[in-house]
């Protein structure tokens, strides 16, 4: 039955193309757009790991992009992925916690999706293994899209455009497999590293950073500032789970919710610092409003917690040093 439907759709696709004057050209375009392509990776970043069942093609990225911006994924067609991951806000939303269907709010701050291709696991607690399966997370969550993956498939099958796009991209009718892959394929393409800091470090443009930013950089990568122990490498994160001494009692147990280990209470994944200037507020719960607040938090050493990372200690930075650090962080904003 499935292959029968597929056959009919293929037939319709052919008819559509034949009936078009430029049929041959369009067929050639579809074939071209089905060629496996490479994600564009800027200097300084490695090519990300891509699952073999979801290698990028233009058709797949295009379909994923369309789905990403389509509220068809939410129960009442009111919210899309892009409602909380806004392109003009570096694919975050500048809210403390995001707003889902019926105006419901969650408990965690929406992260930027720039360079999400490099995440070894998903969510603040790492509870989901990869971008493809992550797509199910917000659909299931009652405070986000609050819908049902199979019902989404039913809607996609009845849609005027999607069946053809799925056929082109994944050679199948709309399915949970294909729509989760398409969205992941698009999200993986959001690779970016063209900040002033990149200009400085990759192109050797010594005038790209101000004196204050350079002092901030030195402090960031020194034992005095300690930042680099967790925020390291080209993405400014080691992807570890750490308790940074935010609370004595955590309302959200973080990594412990996944592992059930008491020693993981209050641990959250170290976030990237790229574009951090533009993705306020900060911390897993959006509780710190500004970069100055964040620097002050780390300068204070945070509050006592048995799981607090031992490298988070009072720093005694001067106000000039704090300004330098904040300025350096602002040099990590992409153009």
């Amino acid at each position: 039955m499935q292959s029968y439907t597929k056959g009919i759709l293929l037939f319709l696709l052919c008819m559509t193309l034949l009936s078009c004057k430029k049929g041959d050209e369009e067929m050639a375009t579809i074939a071209d757009n089905n060629a496996i392509i490479s994600y564009t990776v800027p200097k300084g970043l490695l090519y990300p790991e891509v699952p073999v069942d979801n290698l990028p093609t233009k058709n797949r990225i295009e379909l994923g992009k369309m789905l990403f911006f389509d509220p068809i994924l939410s129960r009442d067609s009111s919210v899309s992925c892009s409602s909380c991951h806004l392109p003009d806000k570096f694919f975050a939303d500048n809210l403390i916690v995001s707003v889902g269907v019926d105006g419901r709010t969650g408990t965690r701050n929406a992260p930027s999706l720039i360079n999400v291709a490099y995440q070894p696991n998903m969510f603040w607690d790492g509870g989901n293994p990869n971008l493809e399966q992550q797509v199910l997370g917000p659909i299931d969550n009652h405070d986000e899209l609050d819908f049902d993956a199979n019902l989404i498939v039913e809607k996609l099958k009845k849609h005027t455009k999607y069946p053809l796009l799925f056929l082109k991209a994944y050679n199948t009718e709309p399915s949970v497999f294909a729509f989760t892959r398409a969205i992941a394929c698009y999200e993986r393409s959001l690779i970016q590293a063209n900040s002033r800091y990149d200009d400085y470090i990759q192109n050797g443009n010594k005038s790209a950073l101000t004196d204050s930013e350079l002092r901030g950089e030195t402090l960031f990568f020194s034992e005095e500032g300690e930042c680099f122990h967790c925020h390291q490498g080209a993405l400014f994160t080691d992807f570890s789970f750490r308790n940074n001494g935010l609370y004595e009692q955590y309302a959200d147990s973080g990594r412990a919710r996944i592992t059930q280990n008491l020693s993981d209470i209050g641990k959250f994944k170290v976030p990237t610092l790229r574009n951090v200037e533009m993705t306020a507020p900060y911390m897993h719960d959006g509780s710190l409003n500004t970069l100055e607040d964040v620097v002050n938090h780390y300068n204070s050493g945070g509050v006592a917690h048995p799981n607090k990372s031992p490298i988070i200690l009072r720093l005694n930075l001067s106000s000039e040093q704090k300004t330098d650090l904040v300025n350096f962080l602002k040099s990590l904003t992409d153009k």
Binding site: G127, P129, Q133, L136, A149
Partner: peptide, 22 residues
């Protein structure tokens, strides 16, 4: 997501799989 719809391990409606702790 890799199972055919008829497989009990495919995504069910209502769901019986945790996506937040896979």
């Amino acid at each position: 997501t890799k199972y055919p719809v008829s497989n009990p391990l495919a995504i069910q409606s209502p769901g019986i799989h945790w996506s937040w702790n896979s």
